[in-house]
Design a protein around this nucleic acid. Structure first.
Lengths: 352, 352
DNA sequence: CTGAAAGCGCTTACAG
DNA sequence: CTGAAAGCGCTTACAG
């Protein structure tokens, strides 16, 4: 490995000067800077990131913390589960943004105890944390808040001195979805909804209710059906629904998410019914898969790019003000949503 | 931050002894060890990982290198593309295995030049690399080989002093798939295949041919149709196929992958045909999604767990022998595949 | 503008 | 079995 010592020798200066040149200090003469740059190129020098982290007491690394279960699972462990596909789609944008900002991304596996978890983040001198928690009451959220490491939450309404959050306008999105169905003539609109105790589910439910009320339609308890976020539970719930509700008392379904909608579509198919002629279905998220469902899924698009961009910018801003020992309370970001019409929704006139 | 200095003071020993106790050296008295352990607990001490990495000249970090395009993209950047879903499913198993072995996983974004890429891995003192390259001629494979960092490749046939690979028995899997269709009475079996210049595609094509030959069926060039690994290209290819082949000269399709099969199913649906009554379709990989396609997809399962377990064990073994300055050429691992029958394949007697 | 020196938190021969 | 000392590769007051 080439060290700064070798660069210094070749350039005829001290390691201190090499370091200054590298870090853009103004206190380096033009000649010295030139010789150093030449030496760096000819030796193929690149500073040792580990040594830099030690002396700076901070590495340019951002840790990803995904709390999807209540266990001490690994970051990606539950990505195979359909309820998390949306966040997965998000992850690649996260990596891209973080790379542009010259940070590394660490998938650090949670250790057994709460305290150790923070400690291990600290002993790695993590610069910041990007956190996604499915369960709003997950104790690890509080743990992160206490760690005093700059943290940005996605879809968790958690704020503090070193943390803030970014989320979609879930209420408005769900309102648009429901409104779309109302415009198509639907009057009995079911919603299969998840996590109404959490920030995402509760807003989506509220948006559904708001659209009905604005249209002068009653909010019927019978039309609000709870289910898990995943495809399988949505499938099971729909099967139950179609079996029990005879004659059927709804003509459309607002799904809590796209992956739930996929389960719903499957249940409707299996029951010998047609989408959208018999039942219209609308999703939420706009994952890539929507184009390939049968039929292609009408949905509400979350602006992933805006969410990720906002999240990373906020996080880096927190890291930098933290470096200067300043306090920094940043406001959250709420990104807009948008209706994407495909083929799973249609007019209600075909129904009884 | 609690340091080893503080632990040493509290335990009445030197930092050297604390370090020895921590690293399981036998040269520590029972009493000293006991006092040190107590001090560690009472102070909540955990060693600084960055400092350890510096002095050991090696961090307990494994870098993930995914080369999916020919660009300098980030690790996850192309995961939204359907052709990579299988590897994504794999990634969570990778993380799990690596966590169990007490290593961290780094998503390190590729820098611009070939040389810099290795340098930046080195300046981070990466212990090992887990690499997946879609394109067998990707120059970065060679770059990795030259880096002399322990590397395990998945699905790339690359070996060296510090590297080996793990892959499925793609030939046998594809043979099983084709045989399954032959057993169902199909005689004109199409294959939509990708990357026949690479290790995966070429083996799958070979398996298809082998099954036909063993059954005494001719290998007809007309039945081998190249397409990209992704859903969209498979969809387009199938649409073209169904349009151009009138009357249709095949009754079944062996897809290069599950995600290709999804595009194929969609094209068949849109053409007004039925799966499996008109055309049988079989995939490859057995991703989670297979259960939710319409109809559920018959496929060949790759043993992800075995692949990942083998990969991580091999990698760690290489890291450890590398630590001892020993040379270590490990043999590759070829994991078995298995036919999973669902509803997208059926008997051929319904066709003309 | 520049260099000598101290220090980040650990580990590891070396001497005892 | 144990401690003092050197060292991993860098940065940063400090003095000039």
């Amino acid at each position: 490995m080439v060290t700064s010592e070798q660069v210094a020798r070749l350039a005829g200066v001290s390691r201190a000067t090499v370091s200054r040149a590298l870090n853009g200090s103004p206190r380096v003469s033009a000649e010295a800077r030139k010789r150093i740059e030449e030496a760096i190129v000819s030796l193929g020098y690149e500073p040792d990131v580990v040594a830099q982290s030690l002396v700076r007491q901070r590495s340019r690394t951002i840790a990803l913390c995904l709390f999807f279960g209540n266990d001490n699972s690994t970051v990606l462990s539950r990505f195979g589960e359909t309820q998390h596909y949306f966040y997965l789609d998000m992850l690649r944008d996260v990596e891209q943004e973080i790379a542009v900002a010259h940070y590394d991304l660490l998938l650090h596996s949670a250790s057994t105890t709460k305290k150790n978890y923070i400690r291990s983040l600290q002993t790695r001198h993590i610069a910041g944390i990007l956190a996604i928690a499915m369960n709003p009451t997950d104790v690890r959220i509080q743990t992160l808040l206490e760690a005093e490491i700059p943290t940005i939450f996605i879809d968790s309404i958690s704020q503090g001195v070193h943390s803030t959050y970014v989320t979609s306008d879930n209420l408005d999105g769900s309102r648009q979805a429901t409104e779309h169905l109302i415009h198509l003539g639907h009057r009995r609109i079911m919603t299969l909804i998840s996590g109404t105790d959490g920030p995402v589910g509760s807003k989506r439910l509220a948006g559904y209710c708001q659209a009905l009320q604005q249209a002068g339609l009653p909010v019927d308890e019978q039309l609000i059906y709870p289910a898990g976020w995943n495809t399988e539970e949505a499938y099971q719930a729909t099967m139950t629904l179609l079996r029990e509700r005879q004659p059927r008392d709804f003509t459309a379904i607002v799904a809590g998410s796209d992956l739930m909608a996929i389960g719903i579509l499957r249940a409707i198919h299996e029951s010998g019914l047609h989408v959208p002629n018999d039942i219209s279905v609308i999703g939420f998220d706009d994952v890539d898969l929507c184009r390939y469902t049968e039929p292609p899924l009408t949905t509400i698009r979350q602006d992933r790019s805006a969410m990720v961009h906002g999240a990373v910018q906020r996080l880096i801003q927190m890291i930098e003000t933290d470096d200067k020992q300043e306090e920094c309370r940043l406001s959250p970001i709420i990104t807009p949503t948008k209706l994407i019409v495909r083929a799973s929704t249609g007019p209600a006139f075909l129904q009884a």
